[in-house]
Design a protein around this nucleic acid. Structure first.
Lengths: 214, 214, 214, 214
DNA sequence: GATGAATGAGTCTTCATTCAT
DNA sequence: CATGAATGAAGACTCATTCAT
């Protein structure tokens, strides 16, 4: 699926990219503070450093800004993930690393992830699929790593479990952002990584079962 | 923490309850369709079956409607949970049942959970704590069940893990609502319950480790 | 000119009078605080001690309340004046006394006078003449006293001056109410009475002219 | 005391002045017809010749319009007075001229004076002092002229009388506007000036006292 | 390309008035 | 007679979008 085109009146591609980057940066800050709906286009223009007129030279509607923001955040997150995941394919270690890396990316981009997470639903039916596609791709990245482990016989998991685990990992990453008001009181990001990884690999340890193993 | 009072001009408590129930019911439907911000007070009044003037006899601001909606949904969900969780305390079975029940409640109230989930952030700083409190209470309910199992020696888990698991269960329940566009293609609600429970209790089975256990 | 009839649904005349008196009393207080337009009918009803439904049993529109209030205030003021002015007709002393009494009435009813004074203009074209009539009558009372003095040869004034003086006295009375924020810093009510009376009777003393008179 | 700043979104000062002048002009007409409260912002915008949106580019609230109107009227009146009063300082003639000029200004700006006079009380506690200050200044202008005469030995008056006379003059000017429904039937503006001046300078002539002077 | 003044549809909220109980 | 819930017209104000300069 190709990117959704956001129309600009200005022709100079380089300029379009530059202006949009300014715009995204300003908008993220504002969306974090007050949400998409409570942020005005004027505020976005001001935060971006240009006039309302100029803003509309690079987008068609306010919603375009939201799309651009979401798109940009996903791009950044998945770009960083991609890099990490290209190494050590098929080993349990690569899965551990993948999870840790993903959680750390989320930690670093907390605000952005939160925004994207809370405002996607404000995208029109038109733009939504493009953003959802990105999310699916990220889940698939985890799926591939896990599948690699299974193919390498490092893990033994049925298809249904693979997908479930991929979803869980993805959501647990987001969870670090959107439940931070609660989680940060309990864990550091490294604690969080360790605990979630441990639970993932070992499940809940029942002393009864353990005893019977002896 | 006491409930936040939403002021009504009308004195008759019974009527206030009745009208607010109408209002909540209509509002949920609308919020699902278009979100809080894109829904107008007139639409809410109409959906509730009365005039805009009457709407404002029972609330002070539009945000009150959102608060009422969130409050009502949490109440319904946690009321159902409470009922289930009072039996079989301290056994692994009660934990299994608790999870299954919670996931089924979420399934039945998908729309409501989704709404609440996506719109809480639109609550003012004033009302937010009251709603967040509800969420914390629900996580604590799971914590208590798990703690019960630990006290009964049915499980052996450190404090940090108990809390982590409680959060995970809570989020995995919500996840069924907010990722349904993706999950429903893969699993029925019962599949989902079984898979998540299995993963929770056993973790990822690694053939390598199993062999080494022999 | 007869009083303007304000229609009431209730038949019992005595009750109508009683309820309207309650209403007027409450309304004056409110009008003083916030003005006619910023006062709601609900507030008036509450201040009067009965329900909004009952309020409308005794008036037809909100404006009726204003009319009733203005009418009542004028009645009180002119009733008190009338009493005083019936004695000592035709003497300068009666004029002095009339002025002093009028100013004192205004002082005692400052709030009421102020309200009436500021809100008459909010009366509809329909009710205005009835209230203005009252004002004219009051000016005429002063006219009569002065005319009495002229007829008694206590004063020697042409018609035009008589009317002018009557107006001046009337306005100087009101002035004590509507410029009190300024005048009270300078004078007590008795100072005010003395000064205004003195100026009225003697005008500005010019030493130059006095000398030339010698 | 500095002027209260009324915030505008538009930066161009010249334009702000121009638009506000249009706005004031339109608003005065409307306020005269129906009063401040019964005039809608849409009507003001229309009367000013632009859209409601544009109106709000130049003010923040409806009350700002009222403040602007009051401020402008006082400015016009006192500007005209100031000009006149700079000449012939300290002579009785300058006082006569000042009164005549002031009354004539009021006559020319009857509507404006009336509006300001009736609506000031609708200003918020915030804006009121700024307008009241203007009124005080105008009274002080008369005070200064009179004081000048006293210093020049053209008049012999105690402090308390000077202030009282200044207030009287000021109120008699306004009176020409707010009692015009009554006064115009009796006098032309020139009659009014002559009569009031005469009364001011000579007081009521009592034939008895005159005889005793001989 | 950039600017920002102008636009007006749309939104929340108030409040005088009615009428069934 | 008294009550107060219901009504909806009306009003202040916002803000995405356009377009002339």
């Amino acid at each position: 699926m190709k990117k959704r085109e956001v129309q600009a009146s200005v022709k100079d591609e380089r300029l379009v990219k530059k202006r949009r980057d300014q715009m995204i940066k300003g908008a993220v800050t504002l969306f974090i503070q007050k949400g998409f709906h409570r942020t005005t286009t004027r505020e976005i223009a001001k935060a971006a450093g240009f006039s309302i007129g100029t803003l509309y030279e690079y987008i068609r509607t306010k919603e375009d800004v939201l799309y651009l923001v979401c798109d940009s955040i996903y791009d950044q997150v998945s770009e960083r993930l991609q890099k990490d995941l290209d190494t050590n394919r098929g080993t349990i270690e690569s899965l551990r690393m993948g999870i840790a890396d993903y959680f750390r990316v989320v930690d670093e981009m907390q605000d952005e992830v939160l925004v994207m997470y809370q405002e996607v639903k404000s995208l029109s039916k038109d733009a939504l699929p493009y953003v959802l596609k990105k999310e699916i791709e990220m889940v698939e990245m985890f799926e591939q790593i896990i599948t690699g482990c299974v193919e390498n016989k490092e893990l033994d998991l049925p298809e249904a479990q693979i997908k479930m685990i991929a979803h869980n990992i993805f959501v647990q990453g987001q969870m670090w952002a959107f439940r931070r008001w609660s989680l940060k009181k309990l864990y550091s990001i490294e604690d969080y990584i360790n605990l979630q990884t441990e639970l993932l690999f070992q499940g809940i340890k029942s002393p009864v079962y353990n005893e019977s193993n002896v």
